[in-house]
Amino acid sequence: MTTPRDLLIVSMDAPSHRPVEQGDLSLALAGAEVIDLIGAGALTLEAELILPSGRWTLPDRLLDEAASSLLRQSPPESVEDWLWRRGRGLSSAYLAALEAEGHLARQRGRWIPVPTGRTALVDSAARRHAADRWASGDPVLTALAAAVGIHHGPAGDLPGVDDAVVTVLAAVGDAVVELDAVRQRRAIEEAAFDNVWRGQ
């Protein structure tokens, strides 16, 4: 399993004080992809710039798709730019992949036993892997989850996490804060617009 898949499963399984925003999750999934691609040797970071390595096929389809979409021209893409470009709609892509692979099932209605539009995780090796990683307090997974509002415990250091991964985690945190600010600004503008119409 990959870090993005583990993060998605944790976002559906772990208790959270608020629903996880899909935009936040998509940004965090894009960050998780960068972290796994660093681990696979598909890229390195120079400061905050992504430097792709040689091309090869990765066993996970979505991670391989991420590697294929790395920009290989000059100037190099920043981690922040990658998060916004790659993250667009990424949570839906990962949900669709989990469902296609049988890790998700459509829930049935309470009174009428027909499938509803909601999905739920089924008991699977992928779910158990993510749960074990979460229970162990894996620092990368817990930091990514915290960025989208799922907290494992008190925030702490990132033991054994190299500087490149710390850079990615910081970029994810900044991007989620920026997206939240955009949402709040839109909510204020919409409320002001509604007030104008009500005042007429």
Results as ranks from 00 to 15, higher is better:
M12F: 10
G89T: 06
P59Q: 14
T116I: 12
R61Q: 07
I38G: 01
H17G: 07
L98N: 11
P159G: 00
S78N: 05
L7R: 00
Q184N: 12
A97E: 02
R85W: 05
G87I: 00
L29G: 08
S69N: 02
A120M: 11
S53F: 09
A171Y: 05
E46W: 14
D123C: 01
S136D: 09
D163M: 08
H17W: 11
A67S: 04
L58W: 12
G54T: 14
L95P: 15
L25P: 07
V10Q: 14
I38Q: 05
S78T: 12
V166H: 01
G31F: 02
Y94T: 09
V196S: 11
A147L: 08
E99V: 14
H151N: 02
A97C: 04
H152Y: 02
V161R: 00
D180F: 03
A155G: 06
G54D: 11
H129M: 15
P75R: 10
I188N: 09
W82H: 06
G102P: 06
A42N: 00
V172M: 07
D13Y: 15
H17P: 10
L8S: 00
S74P: 08
L104R: 00
G39D: 02
L179P: 02
V176Y: 01
T57L: 14
I50L: 14
G109H: 07
R5E: 06
A40Y: 11
L179R: 05
I112K: 10
G153T: 13
P4F: 08
G199P: 12
L27M: 04
V10E: 13
L158K: 09
R106C: 12
A192G: 12
S16R: 04
E80Y: 04
T3M: 07
T57Y: 10
D132A: 02
G173F: 04
W111Q: 05
L158R: 09
L8G: 01
L29Q: 09
W197V: 11
L179K: 02
A40K: 08
L98H: 12
H151T: 01
R108Y: 13
T2L: 14
A125F: 05
A66Q: 00
R110Y: 03
D180V: 03
S92L: 15
P19H: 04
A105L: 11
V148D: 03
V165H: 03
E101F: 13
D24C: 10
R127G: 15
S68T: 02
Q184H: 05
A130K: 10
P113K: 12
L144F: 05
D81V: 09
R198H: 02
A42G: 01
D36K: 15
V176T: 00
W197H: 07
L70P: 06
W82S: 11
G117Y: 10
A131S: 14
S91W: 07
V165Y: 01
E33L: 03
L49I: 03
A155D: 01
E178L: 14
